[in-house]
Each structure stands twice: as C-alpha cells, then as structure tokens.
Design a protein around this nucleic acid. Structure first.
Length: 829
DNA sequence: GAGTTTGAAACT
DNA sequence: CAGTTTCAAACTC
C-alpha cells in the first residue's frame, strides 16, 4: 500500500513532534490525494482569523445568543432529508458508518454548541456553519468510506509532499498522515470540474480560477471541519479503505452544492469581506500551490502545521485586504512563511499579484521558477529574484478591472500559456471591460521590448533606460492612444496622480503600470509595492468598494430572459455599479462610464437628460413597469429592486452604498457558476442560471467565484421544497431574488439599517408583492414563468442551509423563517 | 497635436 | 453631505 513517496513521507522529519504520532500508512488514492491536498489548517489559526473578522466586522450579539437553536433546527433538517436513511448510530461516535457521515459532522457541531464547546467563544460559532458544510462536503466525498471523520481530522494535519505531520493534538489517537500529491489533486479537481462543465469553453485560466476558489473554500471548510472533528472525535480510527475516483467525483458533485454553499453560509464577517476574497482569491490558491511545492522534508513536523496555518492566514489575508500588512506580520511568525506564508502584502492587495497567484496555480512549476511573484518576504529570502519576478511574469495573469478576467502572457510563457488559450469571449465587449491591455501588452513588452528590465547588464540597462526616458511622453502617449484605439487596450497617461489614485486606470484596475504607459512619476510599479499597497489601503478605507468592478452583470440575466428579450442579451444587462453622473454628455459619450462600458444607465445613475443608447435611465421606470407586468421578462436591476424597496415604487434616490453591495452580490453568482459549473443536480437543472453564467459578456468571471459558492450549496438539500413552495406565490421573483441575494451579501450593518422591506412591498406599484416582509424567500418562488424557475431555485439556494450557526442567520431571520415554513409545508405534503 | 470638455475622484 | 478642486480621459478643432 505504501508507495515509495509515501514511505518517504513517512520518513519525513517529525523530530519536533511533541506527541507520539504513530504514522499509519495510507494507500495512495487520487481522491485521498485531493483531499489531503486541501491544506488542512490549524484550528488555532482558524480561531485567529475569526477573531480577525470580528475585529473588522463586529458580530451582532443576537447571533451568538441563539446558536444552539438554529443549529438544532438545521441539523434536524438535514437529518430528515438525507441522514436518517443512513442510520443514526453515529451519535457520539466518529462516523463508523460511511453513509452517516453527515450526521457525525452535525452531531459534532451540535455537541460543540450544546456543550458550550471548550471555548464557547464566538469564534466557534462563527466557524460552525463552515464546519457543517465541510462535514457535508466531506461526507459526500466519502460516502462509501468508513471512518471518514478520521480523514477529516487528518486533513488538518495533512502535509503536502513528504511531510509527516503529527496527527493528533495530543489526544489519544495517533493518526497517520496522508502524503498528498498536489499535482494529482489539482489535476483531479480540474478534471472533475471539466467533466462537469460541458456547456461552455473553459479556458485554462478559468480552470485555474475554479481551482483557486475550490481550494479556498475547501481549505477553510476543511480547516474548520478538521478542528471540529478533532475536538469531537479524537478517537476516530484512520480509514482503511479508499473510495474510487469515480465515487469521489460523484460525491464531489453531490456535495458540491454544499461545499459551495459553505461560502454562502460563511460568517457574516466573511461576507463582509467577500469582495476581497473575490479579488484575492487567487492568493490563497497560490499559497496553497506554493505550499505543496515546498519540500516538506525541510520543515519539521511542527512547522508543517504552521504552514497550514499560514495557508489559512493567507486566505484570511486575502479576504481582508484592508490589513495586508497585518497579515504579513502575522505570518512572519511561521517557520515556513518565507514561502508558503509569504503572501506579499502587495500581492494581497494588488491584482497584479493576484495574477501572479493565478499564474502560479496554472503552472506550478513556472510559478516556482519565476518566483517573481514572491512577496517582499520571499524576496528577502531570495535576493535578486524578486525583481525579475515581476518581470518574468510569464504566465497568464488575471486582472479584474471592471470585474473582467484579463490574461496576460509574456514572451517567455507564451508557448505554455498562450493568450490564445483564453477565450476572448470572457472579456467584456466594452472597452472598459476589456482586459487592461496595458497589463497585457505592458507585461509583454516589458519582457520583450524592454531589455532594461529583462536582465541586461547595468550599462545596457542604463542605456536602455535612457532610451526609454528619451522617448518623449508624447510618443508614449500616442503609442498608448493608438494601441488603446486599435486594440481596445488602455494605458494610463497620468501626470500628477503618480498613478496612485483612482484616476489612474492601471491603479484602479489593481495592476501595475507598465513601460508602455505614458504616465509620469509613476509609483504604481512593483518597486513601489509598499507605496502602492498603502495607497490602495487608504483608498479602500475610504471606500471599500473602490476597487470593485464598476460594471456588474446581473445574475438575473437568465437565458430565458435573453431569449425573450433581446435587449437583455446585450451588455446592457449589466449595470454600472454606482451609476454615472453625467450632466452634459447625455450619456452618449465615453465620458459616461455607463456608456463607455456599453451598459445602460440604471436608476443608480444620477445623470441628467440620459440618452444612453444602451439603455436610458429615464426608461427604467417604464421598463420596470413592463417588468412588473411581465415578470418573465424581468431584468430588474438590483438598483431598481432596491429603489422599489426603499422608495415605495417611486424612483427617487437611493443609497449608492446599498447599490454597490447589491451589485456586488449580483456579480458573484454568475461568476461562481461559471467557475464551478456543476454542483448539484438541482443546479444543473437550472439551465437558465448556468447559461446566464455563460453569457459571453460576463464581467466577473473569476474574481468573485468564491463569492458565488455561498449561493448555491443549500439548493442541493432543498430542491423539492422549492418546487413545492414556489407555486404558491405570485410575487416578483426577480425582485425578490435580487433582494435576497443582496441582503445575503450585504454587510450586517447595512442589513440592519437599509431594508425597509415592509414598506416596500406594501407599496409596490402594481401591488404584486404582498407577502410579509420577513418572507423574502417566498418572493423568490413567486413567478410561475419558466424563465423564472431557475431563478427561483437559485434564489432558494441563497437560503442558508445552516443559518443559525452564524450571525448571518439572525440577520436573515426572514429567510430562515421561510425555510422553516417550507419544511413544515413539505412535511404536510 | 493643442486645447477644450467632461465627469470621476479627491478634497474641503 | 454638499460644494469645490483636481485629475485624466474623451473629445474637438
């Protein structure tokens, strides 16, 4: 059973292992590899990051006051649906029954909560939802496998490649560690994803992004699950059998929804930081990848745990770009942070870094090779490399300017990561949505045409630099302008902002300026990473969404809508996040950001005399009225929904902040879906949703993928319920959909303050919406039109499977209540 | 290419 | 939060 590699791994240093860890040989299995690959995270760290979130997003007291009730309810819910048949003999035990895998997990959670769990602290509760999902997910993946809990426990201690960490936290059992093969795992993931995604082209980057998201989600989930399980089932025995890859895949699919749902059900704090997660998701992936690349043999057992911790921290840091430096500092305590934990502060914050991460994920070898993406810390460890790192940015990098997926390939990697591999369709047709070609071309030219940066010797570099300097700005600007015109790419021409303000398109896009930019006194360069990050941080402190995509695509762009209403097939289905403020251009010139992005103006716009050819703001009222009449054609904007909700059917003024959040929330589902196409049969049955994801113009392909997960998972548990309920309502599902999703994604503070749902519904123009405000989810089920069905399902998924576990549940009282109602109704049936 | 217009971003 | 200033892109000539 023990492969050579495993043997080596077993021999891996465990000198620092305080506890006697009896290593148990683990058969090599792709599945297990994958699972092992999930970067187990130490519980301590988990708690830390939870506290971290708390710091930034104070948790509402009510949430923690009643975690138990919610948990019970949720647990029972799951049990009734899926677990009962598996038997209930899992209580108190660590799942010897494979089929009952879900139960142990829930039981563990339940016990933890009911018994006041060791810490009894908020952190635990915050973690619970994820844990449950983790269990679910893991369960799904191990349905046929006994002692899966052990595995979950094991995950936590699994060390990539040749490292044999101690398994137990000092309890009774000594567990063996599976030595994961990261490459295999990655391949497996990609394969699984690919197999499920048969409807659309999936570029390499996209797969990478998916992996990134998967990795992030699973890392966190597994971490939490591992922690919880470890507490609850230290006596678990190590699994002795391994399921087949096929079974794993099946389970993966079945559990996919749950897995993804975990994100949705993540703590409110997490939700508050979703945006960062979206943008920096790649970070975690990168770190994970790098982790695996790191020779484990170098690090002692204790360190291995550290590493995982770092992985967790990295993810956290990714989620919270507001405090990158803090994160970096925290990671510096880890023994291996140099590599695995070394997320450059810049990387966390700047999208260039993200690109790096993704590139790393796409090609680990390369990433390792051109550690160009190394953080400053890494640079310290490997002097001389970092500078070339950025330059050797050979693989594709992704930027999320305007929520788009951008790919850049440098000359070195073109063969390996040709841009051609990236479907042009992933880019928005609008100029603003196009890849910031300055990155594309800049990075390219930087490598190719700018020897000064490519490793030339000093004299040559100087000469080259002089040449470049001598190049008149005019020429540069002209070149930039030409390239911009001809290729739809943009380069900045900043003169006074130093490219450190949002005026700078590069900076705003989260990427560094490149040589082809015509900017002056540019500080938006890798060498000024600290400055860039600080500035970015400052800007984000003012406006957390400053770097969020300006153009968001509406998740409600279901295929049906597209078919029924050609207007919505255009990019106009997307909207500017905050809307324009045009006064003189009438939204007919590129001065108008909406027009520039080729999207219609929405009620979010404060433009005057709007005549936007992609959609007039003035027409929004009329359109909305039409939509009210014909919900199946509804394409309601989140903005409109919000307005409806807050303005009693009259288009007046609305809070831009709200708009931003709602739009962001809209943004994610699509991306997510595209990133993780198959999750549950239920979701598969929603062609509209999936197709919506496929919309060529989808602006937010990757950055937000993680975000989306949180919306889909629950669905797998309640497809039937949805159908049962949805016929009972005649509400504007579209609105409801948007509303709920927005609500879901919205930070708690906003939820509490800006949702006069009652008035809204009571006052809706045509009185279609009559349901009580607390039953938001019911609205989702309103429309009977086929076009909305998928939407309804999708919406329903937004209902947390395990709402009570988090503060979020409290805030979503209405939703959870609806869920209860549904359960009752279902039971009646 | 120079100058103007425009609206977002930043500032007060 | 509103008004003003700054800024860089878009536009015009």
């Amino acid at each position: 059973m023990d492969s050579p590699e495993q043997a080596d791994q077993i021999k891996a240093p465990s000198s620092s292992t305080p506890t006697s860890s009896q290593t148990v040989p683990v058969p090599e299995s792709p599945i297990f590899d994958y699972l092992s690959n999930l970067s187990p995270i130490k519980s301590v760290k988990a708690a830390r990051y939870q506290r971290f979130f708390e710091t930034h997003f104070p948790t509402p007291p009510p949430v923690f006051s009643t975690p138990r009730l919610d948990l019970q309810r949720e647990t029972s819910f799951l049990k009734s649906d899926k677990i009962d048949e598996a038997g209930s003999d899992v209580h108190g035990k660590c799942g010897n029954r494979a089929n009952a895998i879900l139960i142990p997990c829930l039981e563990s959670l339940e016990k933890a909560v009911q018994s006041g769990s060791p810490s009894g602290c908020v952190d635990e509760y915050l973690t619970d939802p994820v844990e449950v999902e983790d269990c679910t997910n893991s369960a799904g993946s191990h349905v046929r496998q006994p002692n899966n809990l052990n595995r979950l426990l094991q995950f936590r201690y699994t060390v990539p490649k040749e490292t044999i960490p101690k398994v137990n936290d000092g309890n009774s059992e000594d567990c063996k560690i599976m030595l994961p093969d990261q490459a295999k795992s990655v391949d497996l993931i990609e394969t699984a994803v690919d197999e499920r995604d048969t409807e659309r082209f999936v570029g390499p980057l996209e797969l990478t992004s998916k992996n990134v998201n998967d990795q992030i989600t699973r890392n966190v989930k597994l971490q939490n699950a591992g922690d919880q399980l470890n507490r609850q089932s230290s006596n678990c025995q190590f699994p002795k059998s391994f399921q087949s890859v096929e079974s794993y895949k099946d389970c993966l699919e079945n559990s996919g929804s749950a897995s993804e749902g975990s994100s949705k059900e993540a703590t409110l704090q997490q939700r508050g930081t979703r945006r960062h997660l979206q943008f920096e998701a790649a970070m975690t992936w990168k770190s994970t990848e790098e982790e695996n690349l790191i020779p484990s043999h170098v690090e002692p057992r204790g360190v291995s745990n550290h590493r995982h911790t770092m992985s967790s921290d990295q993810a956290i840091a990714s989620w919270n770009s507001l405090c990158p430096s803090e994160f970096v500092r925290s990671t510096q305590h880890g023994g291996t942070l140099a590599i695995s934990g070394s997320i450059p502060s810049g990387t966390v914050l700047h999208r260039n870094s993200i690109s790096r991460s993704l590139s790393t994920g796409s090609d680990r070898v390369l990433s390792k090779k051109f550690g160009g993406y190394m953080s400053s810390q890494e640079e310290k460890l490997t002097p001389g490399h970092s500078n070339n790192l950025a330059k050797s940015l050979n693989s594709c990098f992704i930027s999320s300017a305007a929520g788009d997926l951008h790919a850049c390939v440098d000359s070195n990697q073109q063969d390996d990561h040709g841009v051609e591999e990236i479907s042009p369709d992933i880019f928005e047709s609008s100029d603003s949505m196009k890849p910031p070609c300055n990155y594309l071309h800049a990075a390219f030219s930087e490598q190719q045409a700018d020897p000064s940066e490519g490793g030339m010797h000093t004299s040559e570099s100087i000469d080259r630099a002089d040449e470049l300097n001598q190049m008149s700005l005019k020429k540069k600007r002209k070149r930039a302008a030409l390239s911009s015109e001809s290729e739809g790419c943009k380069r900045c021409n900043c003169r006074r902002s130093k490219c450190l303000k949002l005026y700078c398109e590069c900076f705003a896009a989260g990427v560094y300026c490149v040589d082809s930019c015509a900017c002056e006194s540019c500080y938006n360069k890798p060498e000024y990473e600290d400055t860039v990050l600080d500035t970015r941080q400052q800007i984000e402190s003012r406006n957390p969404l400053a770097f969020a995509p300006k153009i968001v695509k509406h998740a409600t762009d279901s295929p049906a809508n597209v078919l029924d209403d050609g207007n919505w097939t255009t990019p106009a289905s997307a909207r500017h996040k905050r809307g324009c403020n045009c006064k003189k251009s009438k939204c007919l010139k590129k001065y108008c950001e909406c027009y520039q992005a080729k999207v219609g103006c929405s009620d979010a716009c404060r433009c005057e005399g709007c005549n936007n050819s992609f959609g007039k703001k003035a027409g929004s009222m009329y359109q909305r009225a039409e939509r009210w009449k014909n919900p199946s054609h509804c394409k309601l904007d989140a903005t409109e929904t919000d307005i409806d909700r807050t303005e009693v059917g009259t288009v007046t003024h609305f809070s831009p902040r709200w708009e931003e959040f709602t739009e962001i929330s809209n943004l994610t589902p699509l991306s997510h879906y595209s990133g993780a196409p198959s999750v549950s049969p239920s979701t598969r049955d929603c062609p509209k949703v999936s197709q919506a994801q496929l919309h060529p113009g989808s602006s937010s392909l990757e950055p937000s993928a993680n975000h989306l997960r949180w919306h889909y998972s629950p669905m797998s548990f309640t497809p039937q319920l949805i159908e049962n309920k949805e016929a009972h309502h005649e509400l504007d599902s579209e609105n409801a959909f948007t509303e709920i999703r927005s609500y879901d994604d919205m930070p708690e503070m906003l939820k509490n303050t800006s949702t006069p749902t009652k008035e809204i519904k009571a006052c809706s123009p045509n009185k279609k919406r009559v349901s009580p405000p607390q039953f938001l989810s019911q609205e989702l089920m309103s429309s009977s039109s086929s076009g909305m069905q998928s939407v309804r399902k999708f919406v329903w998924q937004t209902v947390p499977s395990f709402p009570p576990l988090t503060p979020y549940s409290k805030s979503n009282e209405g939703i959870t209540q609806t869920e209860s109602d549904l359960k009752r109704n279902t039971g009646d049936h």
